[in-house]
Amino acid sequence: MNELATLISAALLVIGSFFALVASIGLLRLPDVYTRMHAASKAGTMGSCLMLIALAIHATDTGTMSRALAGVVFFLLTAPVSSHLLAKAAYAVGYRLHASAVMDDMEPKDNA
């Protein structure tokens, strides 16, 4: 049982760091700020949450476990809020979408 928990936590550590790597590669490769936000706020949150869950599985006492899970919940709640605020601010100020973007639903219509 103890060995199984250790193995699961090791696997979650590697998977979580892989997600963080994918998020940062997305941050590097994608063309504009909105697509980069899509990479960073989803894959990055997933990565750090998986690593905190690995800590919760590895911990022996319930205090550490519950605090790590509380951190996961807090992070899952705040990451979408902050990135949505940033995207809304950037769009309202007038940062353009990349030329390869096919659709802009928030574009003001002329015939409205």
């Binding site: 936590s9 550590l13 979580g16 760091s17 963080a20 998020a23 940062s24 941050l27 700020v33 980069r36 936000m37 960073a40 706020s41 990055g44 949150t45 990565g47 750090s48 690593m51 905190l52 690995a54 800590l55 590895h58 911990a59 006492d61 205090g63 550490t64 790590a68 951190g71 992070f75 990451a79 902050s82 990135s83 940033l86 601010a89 950037a90 940062y95």
Partner: peptide, 29 residues
């Protein structure tokens, strides 16, 4: 500027991952 803010946000997420790994490695909860 939004790119840099986004990078800062991502940096915080990676630092939390680092803290989790170090917490597991050292057992210092």
């Amino acid at each position: 500027l939004p790119d840099r803010i986004l990078g800062l946000d991502m940096l915080v997420a990676i630092a939390i991952g680092f803290i989790a790994v170090i917490g597991i490695k050292t057992g210092y909860t």
